[in-house]
């Protein structure tokens, strides 16, 4: 437990791992609070990461902790700038793992152009678990038009930045000891949002597709805008591997979580330009137009199925567990 005592052991842990990997002039001052330049309008967010296993195909809890917060900031239209990071370590946490996680966070932060400017470490009793909280600040451009799902209206087009379910499927595969080549899609989306904003796309709403999945988000948009959102299963990208796993486990990719995908509702006239902007990002090569707001029953999400039928969808209920028979 000595690593959390606040004494020498704590400072050793901090200096040997966190200060080393997160090194930047603000953090290097090691003050009680980081002092940073600001902007007229800020976006702030926080998220905690408790994923098991800590390392999985395509990413790890460290990359996830940076991308998760960066993506939340990006979805508000902000340019992510600063992160803080709190580690809660259970007794017995492997220092090699901590170092790998810190290195991964540092790499990801560098890619995102954010600085990790403050941090904290606590050690608690337990079985070696590692949990991370990150909080983030982003700068909002003064001329950023308001993005609000209530403003979606008939004719607007729905875009999805890539394949659904990859992160969820990768985690589930690891937990269930299923061998496959599915990789988490964990990735920062700030660049994709910047590309959309640079082209002056009239964005009505945007969201990163995390827990609850695409259907939960679009159902929420339909309720908020009192519109009918119609999407086409044939146009929704899902990798063959993820589709196969879903078939075996009885899961629905439309309710599965991702960590590097976004959905955007844009004015119809901007749809092609928005698609090109998404595809210009390395994380948007499979982006697609998947549907639009239509004249159907207000507050509903309707999926045209591959079988040619229609299916009404609500938000996710339950935890999206594998079926049992």
């Amino acid at each position: 437990m000595s690593h959390g005592s606040g004494g020498k052991a704590t400072s050793d842990l901090i200096s040997s791992i966190f200060a080393h990997y997160f090194d930047n002039p603000v953090l290097a001052k090691m003050e009680d609070a980081a002092v940073v330049p600001g902007a007229a309008r800020l976006a702030m967010t926080t998220d905690s990461f408790v994923v098991t296993p800590l390392f999985f195909a395509g990413a790890d809890i460290g990359k996830l902790a940076v991308c998760g917060t960066v993506n939340d900031l990006a979805m508000s239209g902000a340019t992510p700038k600063y992160l803080t990071c709190g580690f809660i370590l259970e007794e017995g946490a492997d220092s090699g793992d901590i170092e790998k996680i810190a290195a991964s966070m540092a790499d990801t932060a560098r890619e995102c152009g954010v600085l990790i400017v403050a941090g904290d470490t606590k050690v608690i009793e337990g079985k070696g678990g590692i949990y991370i909280n990150t909080a983030g600040v982003g700068f909002l451009p003064d001329d950023l038009p308001a993005v609000s799902s209530a403003s979606c209206s008939k004719g607007d087009v729905i875009l999805l930045s890539g394949t659904l379910g990859d992160h969820h499927a990768a985690i589930l595969s690891a937990r269930m000891n299923i061998t496959n080549t599915i990789q988490s899609d964990c990735a920062p989306l700030h660049g994709m949002v910047a590309a959309l904003l640079a082209k002056n796309i009239r964005i009505k709403a945007m969201r990163d597709v995390t827990r609850g999945g695409l259907a939960t988000i679009l159902h929420e948009f339909s309720v908020a805008s009192r519109g009918c959102i119609s999407i086409d299963e044939d146009r929704i990208p899902v990798s063959a591997q993820v589709q196969g796993l879903c078939g075996i486990l009885g899961l629905d990719p439309l309710y599965m979580g991702n960590e590097g995908k976004m959905v955007a509702v844009v004015a119809a006239g901007d749809a092609d330009a928005a698609l090109a902007a998404m595809k210009s990002s390395p994380y948007g090569t499979n982006a697609a137009i998947i549907g639009s707001l239509t004249a159907g029953e207000p507050g509903t999400l309707v999926l045209s199925t591959k079988a040619g039928g229609t299916r009404m969808m609500t938000e996710l209920y339950g935890e999206g567990l594998p079926r049992i028979c």
């Binding site: 629905d252 999926l303 045209s304 199925t305 591959k306 079988a307 040619g308 039928g309 229609t310 299916r311």
Partner: peptide, 8 residues
């Protein structure tokens, strides 16, 4: 339900 069979 998932395939929207009743609608067909």
């Amino acid at each position: 339900s998932h395939n929207g069979i009743p609608s067909l």
